[in-house]
Structure formats: structure tokens, C-alpha cells
Design a protein around this nucleic acid. Structure first.
Lengths: 136, 136
DNA sequence: TAGTGCTGGTCTCTTTTTGAGACTTATATA
DNA sequence: TATATAAGTCTCAAAAAGAGACCAGCACTA
């Protein structure tokens, strides 16, 4: 069982935990991925990859995000270094969010995944329908 | 504001909602992505990309997933067509999970993203430290 | 023959996360 | 004077996730 954890670590060359303790849970890749892999992050990355947006623009662009989660997700993206936040001294002050170089770098592979989803959503929809049929 | 939604749609060529209503919320890409983009899916995909595993093996492989979420995530991955579930008539019966062709196809771009995370977790860690410093 | 462990789950309860929506502060406009 | 706008915060309710007990059927052991 433990040997299988080691096995997965080596095969994927991805589970190189800094701790060295072999505990899959404090794996740096998971740490990074969980910042990217959540409901709103990829959507906001997608928007900001197009061009910088202000807070209110993003809110209108993604109407079903709550203000609370927009604030929080942008904050997390900024903390992880993907997004730059700039305040302009207008009245009232406006805030612009844009991708950093790191953000643009990360958006490369993310975009590939999004494109896969675009190309294959038909297949996924069919799979769901088939599955739901066999269950019923 | 509505023109900006259309703008994002066209630029990214990704928001082609079946509804045609222009509502970003019922976008097929988001529908697919949310199945992939969650805490445990990518981790289980990563494990199954290596080789098929049984339920209990996966549980030991990812010690911090609850049995409840393992069941549910595997179920969702199966429903979306990424994972095949096969019951073997051993005593007690064992269940093996493996990737389908669709699953392997999706793992391609997902793997690219995981590799990005592997290569750049240092940069992300540094960004977090810097951010936390300016806040304190 | 009673006890233990293995399999792959489900069920219930608690904790965490998310969502909905009111509220803020300062300024500009009607 | 009343209203709007900006970018949030705050509170409360709802949804999702985690912890851990429990289940059935069979094999092995004492």
C-alpha cells in the first residue's frame, strides 16, 4: 500500500513533496492545482486572458458569481501571482485586474484544457445521457 | 455590458452556449470544466492515468479523501464518461476503475496543466510569500 | 463455532464553504 | 435633496464536504 504511493509518485514525476515524507497530501503540485482548479478561477482567468477588466465589469461579465466569491477568487489569484491588481485614483476609485506573466504562462495549458472541453462537450453530454439511461 | 459578454464569447471562441441566449451561465464548456475542475477529480484522473485501480487501492493511495467523496467523485467521473467501472465476482466482490478513451483524451491537456504546476510551484510559493509580506 | 477481517460502499451528523443580499464611504449628477 | 456609482464587507441561510459508524457476505483463524 505504501509502496503504491511511492509508485504513483515516481511514475507521474509529480508527487515530489517538499516534506519528503511521502505524504501525498502535502504535495506542492496539489497545492498549486487547487488554486487553479476551482469553480471560478478558470473562468476569471479566461476573462482576464482576453484583456484587463475592472471589478464591476467582471461581475457583469459573469453574472452568476456572487460579489463575495468574486472578491475572494480575485484575491486568491492575486496572492498566487497570476493576477495583478491596480487601483486608479478616480472618484470613486476604480480597480483594474490583469494577468501577470505567471498568469499568462499558466493560462497556456489551462487554455488547452478549455479547448478540449469545447471540442468534447458533445461526447460528455452523450456519456451522461447513456449513464442516466442505464441507471433508470 | 451585454456587448462585453458577446465580446468575451467571440474572442475566446469558447462560450458557444447551446441555448444561444448568450447567458454565460449555461455554457457547455463550463458544464464540462466543472466536472474536471474540482478538488478530487484531477487527482483521481492522475492516479488512473497510470493504471487501473480498485476502490480500496485508491482510498489508500489518496489517504486524505473521504470514502464518501471517493465514491461520489468516481461516480461523477463515470457518468461523464472518463472512467469505466467494472465489478469482478471475487469474494468479496472487487471493483476496478480505469480510464476510458475519452478519459485518456481529456488527461492529455490536464497533464499539461499538472506539469505546469510541477514546474512552477516555486514561483507560486514565492508569490504567496511576497503577497503575505505586503499584507502584514 | 465464534470472532475478525476483507470487500465496496451507504447513512448520519458536524464542520466548512458558498450564495444572497443588505450595508458602507465618498463623490458626482439630476 | 435624492440617487447613482465604485469596490468591496458583513451577516445569515443553504449547500457541499468531511468524519466516522454501520452494513452484508464470505474466508480465515482460534
Amino acid at each position: 500500500m505504501d509502496s503504491k504511493i511511492v509508485n504513483l509518485r515516481s511514475k507521474l514525476e509529480i508527487y515530489k513533496a517538499d516534506s519528503g515524507g511521502g505524504n501525498i497530501a502535502d504535495c506542492p503540485v496539489r497545492d498549486v492545482i487547487q488554486g487553479i482548479n476551482n469553480k471560478w478561477s478558470s473562468l476569471l482567468m479566461m476573462a482576464l486572458a482576453e484583456k484587463p477588466y475592472r471589478f464591476g465589469e467582471l461581475r457583469r461579465l459573469v453574472p452568476d458569481i456572487s460579489q463575495r466569491m468574486l472578491t475572494q477568487t480575485l484575491h486568491d489569484l492575486q496572492r498566487d501571482g497570476y493576477v495583478h491588481r491596480e487601483v486608479f485614483p478616480t472618484k470613486p476609485p476604480s480597480v483594474e485586474y490583469s494577468l501577470t506573466d505567471l498568469g499568462r504562462s499558466m493560462f497556456g495549458p489551462l487554455h488547452q484544457l478549455l479547448q478540449w472541453a469545447e471540442r468534447n462537450h458533445g461526447a460528455v453530454r452523450d456519456a451522461r445521457a447513456a449513464f442516466d439511461n442505464t441507471q433508470a
